[in-house]
Each structure stands twice: as C-alpha cells, then as structure tokens.
Nucleic acid binder design. Structure first.
Lengths: 216, 216
DNA sequence: GTCTATATGAAGATAGAC
DNA sequence: GTCTATCTTCATATAGAC
C-alpha cells in the first residue's frame, strides 16, 4: 500500500473536444487516470483495458501501442495549455504587465482545471520517441517562447526589472506547473482565486524595481 | 530513441556521507542515474546491476528489493535538503526576510548541486509503501513546515504581505523544485547565482506591500 | 561477496474466430 | 469492434555453488 498520492486530484478530466466518442475516448480517459496516478511505465495495458470495460486486445484496435496513447494525451494537454495562454494574451492589450497577468492566470487555470492532464503531459513526456513527441515538443516550445517574449518586451520597455529573462521564465513557469500536483476541486480556494494570486506573484517577481547598486 | 531528456544533468552525484563504500555505493549511484533519467518503474534491476559492474543477483546481497534502493535514495535526498535548509536558517538571524533568503538559497542550491537526487526524491516518492517512505515523508513535512513558519512570522511582524501563507509556500517551493530539471553544470550561471536570483524572487513574492483595497 | 542458473509472474503485442 | 488464446520477452527475486 502506498501512503502518498502522486497528485491530489482524484478524477480524470478531458475537454469534450479531446475525448473521441466511444471506446477510444474511454481508453484515453482511463489511461489518463492511470498514467497520472502511477506513471506511464507502472500502468499496464491490462489495467487500462479493465478500467475501460474492455479486454486488452481491444485496445490495439484503437491505438497501435501504449506509447501512442501517451502521445495523444501529451499532445492534447499541451494543445489546451498553448491554446489557453495564447488566447488570454491576445485578449489582454499591449501592456506587458497585463499580458503577464493574462498568461499566468491561463497557465495556472489549466493546471487547476486539468491537473491529471498537466501532470501526464509534463512528467511523462520524456518517454516519447522523437516521432511521437514531435507535436508536443513544438507546442511546449511555443508556449515557453511566448512567455519569454512578454518578459523581454517588459524589460525593453522598462516596466520589468529582473537580471535574467530566462530565469524568470523558469521560475514563473515552474511555480505554475507544480499547482497540478496539489490542487484538487476539494481545495478551499476556487481555481480563479489560485490563478489570481499566482498572477500577482509573477508581477511581483518581474516588476519590483531594485537598487541597481545592490548587485541584482 | 527518445528526443527529450527528463532532466539536463548527466552525472549522478551523491554526498560522500550518503555513499557507502564498495558495492552498495556503486549500486546506489547507478540506481540514482537510472531512476532519474528513466523513472523508477522503467529502470530494471538488470540495468542497475550492469551499470554497477555486477550481476543482478548480487544486488540482492546488499538491498532486499529494488524498492529499498529507491527508499534509500529518497531518504538521503530529503535528509540533505532538510539539513541544508535548517542549517541555513539557523545561521541567518531573526529577521524573517533574512531567513527566507537563507532558506531559498539553500533549497535551490541543493537542487543545482544534486539535481538527480532531487528529481528522484520528489518525482518517485509516490511509489514507496508507507513503511519504506516513512522517514522521507517526515523529513519532507519538516522542511515544508519550516518554510511555512518563516512566512507566518513575517506576516505576523508585518514585513511580508501575501493573502495566503500556504500559497506562498507552494509557489516558492515549487519554483525551486523545478530547478533540478533544467540545471546542469554546463549552464552558464553558477549554482550560487541561480540561488541568489531565486532568493530575490521569493522576497519579492512575500515582501511587496500592495494596496489593501485592491482585494489581494 | 559474487556468481550461474532459474523460478515465477507479468509485460506489450498479435492471430484469428465471431 | 470485441473477444479468447497465446507468443515472446522481460520483470523481480531466489537457490545454491564457489
């Protein structure tokens, strides 16, 4: 028996447009839960089949391999994450401060709304081959580049003050990513409340003007 | 072939006092590298044996099971992390701002100095049984409680200004934890430089006084 | 302490009937 | 589309010689 859960969330959630009808959708959802809770390598095709109400062989009528199921989950996870931060930033106006708030709210919101998808898409991505991971890697790079560009624009305009844009990307992205591990719908704060606080943290990280003689 | 690495670090590092002499130490170090790069479930005892220059059966002369090897790695990782943040805070004086700087520097420093150990101790902890994980869970809780107490003291003294102490613990802890995934000795910043920047970020998150009427 | 050899089970995946 | 049955490989772990 294991004492500790890998993540707090208990239910697997997929956006309707990412869940195909019939057995493929059931398989995807069952795999999402198992991959999130136990990890890709520790979850077997037999377990995915049992959780889908199917026999193992039936899985292979819908997905060519277990790795293809993971690839699809990683892809839809990063797709939703990329779509949501891009839409948020496009709707936020030209001020880098507004853009950061929009980006972080969307980023954190995705991790509270789809914690299992976020955990699988991030923590299990490394097992994918170059071919099966290509779509996901591209989406991930786009999202990260967008955050970097917002921060760089804020630095160029003099509204942000950090010594190193990339470290700010890493810190802001990293704190958001971890939300998926501890957030669950039973948590006393609503998703938007967590997102608002993290957006404020990101602004604080970026927008505090420090004394240049202090060495930072 | 996999395109993406799970973490940037390429070498397994253990503190001398955590690496027993002879074969047990070789086994521990080989397992650390394999568990960090591929994950616990995807790394086999055969591979650990090969990387240690031993045969699989020899492993069981030193560790009762593969899970016991992981338990030992999780324990020493959390032990070093707990030891280092406690020592840092004890040496930092009574001001919560100094304590936060000391804590985050030590926390990030541990994740840059021992990235594989940090990744394994955090990402693979969930597979341990209650018995084998007990020592680690206790250390992890101590470290987290220490950070929470520093923040609460700063709030009580009016030097920190956040709406929710636990969210600050999660954000500051989370951004530090992620460092282990991207940092490697080839990175252009030295460990202490990364640690200093992250300590400044933590101070900014906590110590920015906002307008109370703004709702945060 | 280390080895060879092996027990035992479970893994991913396929063949072919219905 | 789904099933039963099975192939093949690899997993953790053990027995017992040196």
């Amino acid at each position: 028996m294991t004492l500790n859960r890998r993540l707090a969330a208990k239910a697997a959630r997929l956006l309707p447009e990412h869940k195909p009808p019939g057995s493929p959708g059931l398989i995807l959802e069952a795999a999402l839960k198992l991959f999130a809770e136990r990890g890709y390598a520790a979850a077997s095709v037999r377990e995915i089949a049992a959780a889908s109400g199917l026999k193992p062989a039936t899985i292979y009528g819908h997905y060519p391999s277990k790795e293809h199921i993971l690839a699809e989950l990683c892809r839809v996870g990063h797709e939703e994450q990329n779509r949501s931060v891009r839409a948020a930033v496009l709707n936020s106006g030209a001020d880098p401060r507004d853009q950061i708030v929009a980006y972080v709210r969307a980023h954190v919101g995705m991790h509270t709304s789809f914690p299992m998808l976020a955990v699988v898409a991030n923590a299990e991505l490394h097992v994918l081959s170059a071919e099966l991971g290509a779509a996901t890697f591209s989406l991930r790079e786009q999202s990260e580049r967008l955050l970097g560009e917002i921060i760089q624009r804020g630095l160029d305009r003099g509204v942000f003050h950090v010594p190193n844009a990339w470290l700010a990307v890493a810190a802001i992205g990293g704190m958001g990513l971890r939300v998926a591990y501890w957030y669950s719908p039973e948590y006393r704060l609503e998703p938007h409340e967590v997102a608002d606080v993290y957006a404020e943290y990101a602004l604080r990280i970026l927008a505090v003007k420090t004394d240049p003689s202090a060495g930072l």
